[in-house]
Design a protein around this nucleic acid. Structure first.
Lengths: 338, 338
DNA sequence: CTGAAAGCGCTTACAG
DNA sequence: CTGAAAGCGCTTACAG
């Protein structure tokens, strides 16, 4: 099919090794030799076969990033950051789409593309600890996000409890008294919302404010429609919140839509805080107050962890890395003109 | 390092070929033999080395999808659709991020990962026809989107002129008289907005409405901030539009924000139409009327084209495929309660 | 139905 | 500074 090193070597009248040296830019080749080989390469239009190189070297320079949902801007923005961080280490990113389903999450952790990817960064939703303990694939795995596991893997995650508490503290500080939480998922025990829900409860307890289940609305997913449904539930059952802390920005945006269509003013009647700081929240008719995880730091640290295991210390003890976050205050809690 | 076919063969006391037959599920293996081999596979924890298989077969089952911007939900949603469409053909998608920069677009078309990807789907922004004609890589390439080229490649794109005309016709039909266009990019000659701008002009001419340059506002990018800036420019120079057709939804959302903060009501004072039908447009305080390209059809047809060249007819004449679109009417042109 | 051998296109010690 | 040879782990004709 294609032109191989051998063809180039033949044309240039040198050995394969010499061509390889030129292609890989090694030092000890005389300029004249280099020029001769380069000419043969150009004439034949030679392109190195990376697959062969991968086989020989035992690595590919490809890492996989497995995310639940590209349609969620948080993950899309995170993916962009990971691609950039990986490029700085000369790694290419192969993106996987798990849909947050346990079956697909297990599939990617089992390394169904053995030897094609050097390592994996996974943001799990439904995966459980036993799934990780049963893993046989030996390539490095770095976990992202708020699910917690008792398994020996690097894990990059912000302090969700502290982040949630800062959001609730802000709401309490602006005089809110009935602060609801939307976005818990009833059907999953150790769910992602777990920690944010705990932070919500702890801070409300510390402030001496109500934090009963009547102020918690569950959703069956993580999108705008799910937030809308949870918000509607909350209102329909007469919870009468004067503030809402949503699991993420998408749910907050869905909630905002419901509040508006029902004639409730944000923030005058109900203040609203989201989580993720997606760009969308900066451009609504009401801009959204939100917890902003440092996405670039998350991406960089995830890639750094993976690269370290790939190049230096494969057996280092698993690390738990905590990137920072900020609370970004906007109109949905302070109103216009602040 | 890992366990190879040879190790399994040795353990099972058979030849490599037999193990390969079992691994690949070939027919003519006796059940007893299959069981014996399978046991050896399980005991050794054998995983086939796909890189070796790729080298041998000359293909990898990986296709690349190169997009300008994952942070734009249109592309994120499209990426999800392509991943799903590819999976149905047993292809894995490797995502590339061009940032819409010509240099990076050239890089991906040149096939910088030779033999790692079987083919490429590219949505170009700044790429030019000569770049395509100079391409030496022989792997199939399918183009996506509104940039037009005189080059022999499959191209999947909706009829942007007709789509733009339908949007403008709708605005004119609801009584609008000064219908502006925002989102053209002044610095690129044959820019993406080209066709939508032409559709805008043609339809306005057909309706006998003004369509001078004073009703066109340029932007320097495709995001919310760019739409906001273009909208502000338009208002600042006293164009006094009663309707705006934006190049895409993100720009429309940025424009909406500016209109709102300046006290103009949408749609009472200014009606607004976007393009792309991203989910975000369905959840604002004002939902967005928009042109909705059939993203699933686009993704499916792009993958189908690529797979056909990969498997059947590599030299078929280049095809131009036109997926459908709809105009989705929402509050930003009709108001609440319609 | 199974085996022995060649070869995909590289890189890497090992010589010289 | 360059060459000859082995081998990464597979699949695929070719035999039997």
């Amino acid at each position: 099919m294609g032109v191989s090193l051998k063809d180039v070597a033949q044309r240039a009248g040198v050995s394969i090794k010499t061509v390889s040296n030129v292609v890989n830019g090694y030092q000890h080749v005389t300029p004249a030799m280099r020029a001769r080989v380069q000419q043969a390469i150009d004439e034949l239009g030679y392109r190195p076969n990376l697959t062969a190189r991968h086989l020989r070297k035992g690595r590919t320079g490809i890492i996989a990033l497995a995310l639940p949902e590209l349609g969620n801007p948080y993950f899309a923005e995170l993916a962009g950051a990971v691609i950039d961080a990986a490029a700085r280490h000369d790694y290419t990113v192969l993106l996987d789409h798990t849909a947050g389903e346990r079956r697909k999450e297990i599939l990617v952790t089992q390394g169904f593309r053995t030897h094609v990817i050097d390592g994996l960064i996974l943001s799990p939703i439904e995966l459980e600890t036993p799934d990780l303990l049963a893993r046989t694939d030996s390539s490095p795995l770095v976990l992202l996000g708020e699910r917690e596991y008792d398994a020996p893997y690097d894990h990059i995650v912000i302090d969700n409890v502290a982040a949630a508490r800062s959001a609730v503290r802000h709401l309490a500080g602006t005089g809110r008294r009935r602060i609801a939480f939307i976005g818990a998922r009833s059907e999953i025990a150790r769910q992602p919302a777990h920690l944010r829900l705990r932070g919500w409860r702890e801070e409300l307890a510390a402030c001496g404010l109500p934090h009963g289940d009547d102020l918690v609305a569950t959703a069956s997913g993580y999108g705008r429609a799910d937030g809308a449904q949870a918000m509607a539930d909350l209102l329909d059952r007469g919870a009468r919140p004067d503030a809402v802390f949503a699991y993420n920005d998408l749910q907050a945006i869905g909630a905002l839509r419901v509040l508006t269509t029902r004639g409730l003013r944000v923030p005058e009647d109900v203040a609203l805080v989201g989580f993720d700081d997606i760009e969308e929240g900066r451009y609504g008719t009401i801009t959204l107050t939100t917890v902003s995880p440092d996405k670039k730091a998350i991406a960089r640290q995830a890639v750094d962890c993976l690269v370290q295991r790939l190049t230096g210390a494969p057996d280092a003890p698993p690390r738990r890395v905590r990137p920072g976050f900020d609370l970004v205050v906007r109109e949905s809690t302070l109103g216009r003109g602040h």
